[in-house]
Design a protein around this nucleic acid. Structure first.
Lengths: 133, 133
DNA sequence: ATAATTGCAAACACTTTGCACCTGT
DNA sequence: ACAGGTGCAAAGTGTTTGCAATTAT
């Protein structure tokens, strides 16, 4: 990756201007397919990951690879993802990070971590409504 | 899923006796391929998930689907996965769970959550050795 | 007997690779 | 000029589906 190309610029630009914290290869491709091929997106994102400009992680096996642009506003936030409504909640909490580091001898990368569970609203709904199955 | 079959018994039995907390479809298939077809494993595990007997989650896009048998010893442990050595560390820590619940209004399902980062050993190695790239 | 289950092969979806063509330096 | 990058098509991998044969009730 020694040359600068139109395609790389387009992709990086898109990542910079895209407001979403997390974006999948498919989302990028759907936006840019007139200008950049899918293979190039795969290859360039792989490169950007090596350079620590994006982080790659998987939210589910069903989706294409998910990336987060490190320059974006949301960095260092922790993600809580609700199973039920699939909403992602961003929290800012150094305490949690410090706890894992100090008490468990492990330096967490909260950018790459998603904590799964049930949000307050869905939990409340669940009590009033059906239990299903 | 109204009939009991030899195959279902074999799979469930294997999950019960298997000591690992997390197991992939491929691991199950490699053990049981003489007795059960892969498709049956997929279908039965899907069913077991609906019945809440196993939980499905993904550690990485590279591996086949990962399941955790809910009856196993390790339930409610938290997983820390090291990027570098890919080791999974199991910790038992109610504090962390409580913190998220109380302070962030979110009930985490730590069974389905993997916290990514760097373990102590790899961090130490990194300091002495090359930084690479 | 018959409705459900199994398992092969084929279809799918996401990702990676081989290679000829194009582009940046 | 030529090393590096792009993108098509093909291959690779994990998962799902169609369907005929088998099995549980």
């Amino acid at each position: 990756m020694k040359y600068n190309t139109k395609q790389k610029e387009i992709i990086l630009n898109y990542l910079k201007n895209n407001n979403k914290e997390c974006i999948t290869i498919n989302e990028i491709y759907q936006k840019l397919n007139k200008e950049v091929g899918k293979v190039t997106i795969y290859r360039y994102l792989e490169q950007l990951e090596k350079e620590n400009i994006v982080n790659k992680y998987s939210l589910s096996n069903k989706e294409s690879a998910t990336y987060k642009f490190n320059g974006c506003l949301y960095n260092n936030h922790i993600h809580l993802m609700c199973f039920k409504c699939e909403k992602i909640i961003h929290i800012d909490c150094k305490e949690l990070e410090e706890h894992i580091k100090k008490d468990h001898n492990f330096t967490p990368d909260m950018c790459k971590t998603t904590i799964y569970g049930i949000c307050k609203e869905c939990e409340n709904k669940g009590e009033n409504n059906e239990k299903s199955n």
